[in-house]
Amino acid sequence: MILIPCPWCGPRNVSEFRYADEAKVRPDPNATTPERWRTYLYMRDNPAGWTTEKWFHRAGCRRYFTLERDTVSNAVRAAEASREV
């Protein structure tokens, strides 16, 4: 059970959180192409190494925040808190 460093509550068990996808930018809905939009919807980088992810502290402060995680070692480190900080 890894510890997730919530920027608001501190380190908590991962079971309190929901993984909320890779951190990525939503294309402009009025200027996108099917290829670009569906890449945003369905394609994931899935690297062996550090990734930037969105997590949701479901059983805590209920804030979304970004986090960096090494998919090989499960090491985690804080990224900047969600954009509204």
């Binding site: 939503r26 979304y64 969600s82």
Partner: peptide
Amino acid sequence: WEWIESWLQTEHPD
């Protein structure tokens, strides 16, 4: 509820 919070917090925090 989670869906709404997601849009408010990550896409439109303003």
